[in-house]
Each structure stands twice: as structure tokens, then as C-alpha cells.
């Protein structure tokens, strides 16, 4: 029976039988009514989605092929010649040229050749450090807090608090923590390690990574704690009977059974770090010497400081292309989890 218990009146297909019963089948009122009610209920969201998400995506795409400037006016296709063919891809070309390996990889080393590639460099470096460290860190903290440790809630809150902060607050607070006479140097001075961490181009990006980790570890800790709850107790008991000690249980039971969580956390972290913006802006406004100019900081400046909307849209779509790949996997996982719940 259970096969049919699930849904209320699904589509009814034309009936065989008397004319009267055929009519009854066609006049299947619950379905018509359901359609009406269904559309009515989703209508508000359809409107706001069309206006503020779906429409803008399409428009941004068009925009990325146009010269667009808040002050100079709109709508001219951004023509350029590519191998003798006239195409409206000037925005994309301006962004991508010169390619990173030209000038002996100059744009990777210095912001003066091509700011886009320099921003890509910053973002990739940020991602490469922050993602693995915040995942491993989050896992270890979760593991430690999932024992019989006392004061679990207090510790959890301590690690999670930074997640609650606005990027503006995190950035500004850390700017002061790392300032010349900030608390970090107060602590390091006795060791002879005082340094202008935030205002030196050599260390500003590393400082930004630290801020990212401050929030990221707490966030991943929560996801791992949730994942740990889903591992059945019996598996640990079986492992104990099989003679596994504490570390072996972590290695052979905990870690492999968190496979879904690892995947989820990784994809989320990559998407998040690729779009790092608020803390970078509030911490150092992209500086010093462009050291913390990430991709999104650059897009923001291009659009809302320079008002080059077309150019910024092309950058946004280049970012979209990268993020899309990871987002797609994230979406797939969310679908899988939906089935499991």
C-alpha cells in the first residue's frame, strides 16, 4: 500500500468507462485547485526572484558585453577585434590581457601589469592556505569537543563567536589587533618579533588569512560536530570489539564515516574563500600595495568606485565560471542529503 500513500491526488489520466465517469476524470478538480493554490503560494517568491536574482543574472550577462558607465551612459556594445573579427568582448579582453605569463609572469609578482591576475593570485593564495587549514582545524576542534570534556558549550561558543561577526567588525577589530601598537605586537615584543603586520605588503595577505581562519575554523567545527552526531554508536562498539584503540577508531571509523561532511565542507570553503571580500575591505581596503586586493574587492572597486559596470560584470562572470563548478558539486551534495533526511 505504501506505494500509493505518498501523494495527494496526482495527475489523473483520461479514463476508460462510461461517458459519465470519463467526465468525472477530466473534471479532476483537486488538480486544478492544487495548481491554483500552488501558484498563488509561490507567486511572491517568483516575483522577487525574477526581479532581484534571475533578471539581474541575465542583465549582468548582457552588461558584460557592453560599455557601461554610470556617468557616461549605457548600452554601447564593447567592440574589439579578435584575430580580425569584430566582437563585443572588449571587457573580457581588457580584464584578461596581458596574460599572466607575459612580462615574465609580471602580473603575478606585481599589481602594476594586470590587476585582475594579481587579484587572482591573491585569491588563490588565500584559498590554498585557508581552505585546508580551516578544515583540518575545524575537524580537530570538533573532535576535541565531542569527548567528555567539561564546559563543552562554553568552548563551542568561544570558537563559534567570530562566525557571528560582520565582516566589517572582524576586519576593523583585527586591524587594531595587528596594528603597530596592537595586542599582537604587545605579546610578540618581548620575543623581539614585533612587526607592522597589517601595514606591510609582505604580511598583509597572511594576516588576512588569519582572520579568515578565525571565522572559518568555528564554522567548520559546527558542521563537523553535526556530522559526528550521525555516526552510529554501534560502529565504535564494533571497532572496540575488533580491538581498535582510540586513534585507530578515529582513523577507521570517524574519518571515513564523515565522507559526506568532508565533501560538503570542502566545497563550501572553496566557494566562500573565492568570494572573500568584506574582511579584506574592512581590514586593509585592498592594500597595502594591493596585497589584499582579492577578486571580489577588485570587482567592487571597478563597479562602485570607478563605475565601470560593464567591465565589472565581465569580471563577475569570470568569477562565476570558477565558482559555478564548485557550486554545482555543492548543489549535488545538498540533493543527496535531501534524500537521506
Amino acid at each position: 500500500m505504501s506505494t500509493f500513500d505518498g501523494g495527494i491526488g496526482s495527475r489523473v489520466v483520461g479514463a476508460v468507462g462510461s461517458a459519465r465517469s470519463r467526465l468525472a476524470a477530466l473534471a479532476d478538480r483537486p488538480t486544478t485547485e492544487n495548481n491554483l493554490v500552488g501558484y498563488l503560494l509561490v507567486l511572491p517568491n517568483v516575483v522577487v526572484f525574477s526581479l532581484f536574482l534571475l533578471g539581474p543574472i541575465a542583465y549582468a550577462f548582457v552588461l558584460s558585453f557592453q560599455e557601461w558607465n554610470l556617468f557616461l551612459g549605457t548600452g554601447e556594445p564593447a567592440w574589439t577585434e579578435v584575430f580580425g573579427v569584430r566582437l563585443p568582448v572588449a571587457n573580457y579582453l581588457d580584464t584578461l590581457m596581458p596574460l599572466p605569463w607575459e612580462n615574465d609572469w609580471g602580473s603575478i609578482r606585481s599589481p602594476s601589469y594586470n590587476l585582475w591576475w594579481f587579484a587572482v593570485r591573491n585569491t588563490v593564495a588565500y584559498t590554498a592556505v585557508v581552505v585546508p587549514v580551516q578544515i583540518v582545524g575545524g575537524f580537530l576542534v570538533a573532535l576535541a569537543l565531542d569527548t567528555r570534556i567539561r564546559g563543552k558549550k562554553v568552548f563551542r561558543a568561544a570558537y563559534f563567536m567570530p562566525v557571528m561577526l560582520s565582516a566589517a567588525a572582524s576586519g576593523v577589530i583585527w586591524r587594531w589587533v595587528m596594528a603597530k601598537n596592537g595586542v599582537l605586537n604587545e605579546l610578540l615584543r618581548p620575543l623581539g618579533l614585533a612587526y607592522p603586520w597589517a601595514s606591510s605588503p609582505d604580511t598583509a595577505l597572511a594576516a588576512l588569512m588569519l582572520i579568515g581562519l578565525w571565522g572559518g575554523i568555528g564554522f567548520n567545527m559546527i558542521l563537523y560536530l553535526a556530522g559526528l552526531q550521525n555516526i552510529p554508536e554501534e560502529l565504535y562498539e564494533a571497532a572496540r570489539i575488533d580491538g581498535a584503540d582510540g586513534w585507530q577508531r578515529v582513523r577507521h571509523v570517524t574519518w571515513p564515516n564523515l565522507r559526506n561532511t568532508h565533501f560538503f565542507v570542502t566545497v563550501l570553503a572553496i566557494i566562500g574563500t573565492f568570494q572573500v571580500f568584506g574582511i579584506a575591505l574592512a581590514f586593509a581596503e585592498g592594500g597595502p600595495a594591493r596585497a589584499t586586493t582579492t577578486i571580489v574587492v577588485l570587482i567592487y572597486e571597478t563597479a562602485f568606485v570607478e563605475s565601470s559596470f560593464g567591465r565589472a560584470a565581465s569580471m563577475a562572470f569570470l568569477l562565476f565560471a570558477v565558482v559555478f563548478v564548485f557550486s554545482y558539486y555543492r548543489y549535488r551534495i545538498q540533493q543527496q542529503q535531501e534524500v537521506e533526511y
Binding site: 501523494g7 543574472i57 549582468a60 562602485f304 559596470f309 565589472a312 563577475a316 555543492r330
Partner: peptide, 29 residues
């Protein structure tokens, strides 16, 4: 509520999670 196009609409809603906010910020502005 069972209505025609329900699953597709849901997919459309959820798929927008993928879009970086910078893409839509400019046109919305």
C-alpha cells in the same frame, strides 16, 4: 501542494544559490 512544474520551479530557486552575489549586485544596483 502538487502542482504542475513544482519540481522544476524548486530547482530554479535552489540553483540561484550558485550565483556569486557580485554578479547580481551590479544590475540590482
Amino acid at each position: 501542494v502538487e502542482f504542475v512544474g513544482r519540481e522544476k520551479l524548486f530547482l530554479l530557486f535552489v540553483a540561484t544559490i550558485m550565483v556569486p552575489s557580485m554578479v547580481t549586485l551590479i544590475p540590482v544596483f
